[in-house]
Design a protein around this nucleic acid. Sequence first.
DNA 1: TTATATTTGGACAATTATTGTCAAGACTTA
DNA 2: TAAGTCTTGACAATAATTGTCCAAATATAA
Lengths: 106, 106
Amino acid sequence: MVTQQTFGETLRKLREDDGMPLRKLAALLDIDQSTLSKIERNERKANPDMIDKLSKIFKADKKELHISFVSDKVVYELLDEESSVDILKVAEEKIEYLKSKRTTRK
Amino acid sequence: MVTQQTFGETLRKLREDDGMPLRKLAALLDIDQSTLSKIERNERKANPDMIDKLSKIFKADKKELHISFVSDKVVYELLDEESSVDILKVAEEKIEYLKSKRTTRK
DNA sequence: TTATATTTGGACAATTATTGTCAAGACTTA
DNA sequence: TAAGTCTTGACAATAATTGTCCAAATATAA
């Protein structure tokens, strides 16, 4: 298991391993190159529909990319928190609670 | 350990156990009563500076309220996700990674 | 060095989301 | 009815996000 990277770092690695210039990937994704540059450096959030395109371009696992993408959003909420581990634990319990509520709805 | 509630549900319980009308709590918190009503029913997000006031009004633990508040935001991101547990796990690893990066900065 | 390619920074308008506020409706209890 | 409580929907004001452009910075090659 590798040390976890942000979505942007993962993206940059995929691109650089492929030797593809940022400008070209931006064109393939149909976004501005400066936007892509910012996404790779975690200055902006990616758009979820990039994931499909990326998995096709780099033959990367879609689900992994998705998890990386969503977890980034969670991280963003917690980075300045002290008790991030506690928060994650409580969040997990709440999700259980809310999902069970859904299925047992009248 | 009780089943986890949302921040709004916790808030409503605190208020009702105290027998305080919504209108009055809204006044104490200096927000509109309709806003408070929506917060208690998870229709709107609470404002973080409510936490301080709430802990004073109801003599509730500030840290617990804070954790409940922030975890709600995390839950909100994940409620429609299939692999929420995986995402939380990855998020936790990323936070570790990013925090260690911070401390080892040149 | 110069020339060329690549990446980054900052500013901007357009769009979208959030917030605070209000008034009316619904519900309950007396 | 009347009074108290809570909820609903609408709205404007504000804030956040997004997409875009272009110039500045950086890197690469000749």
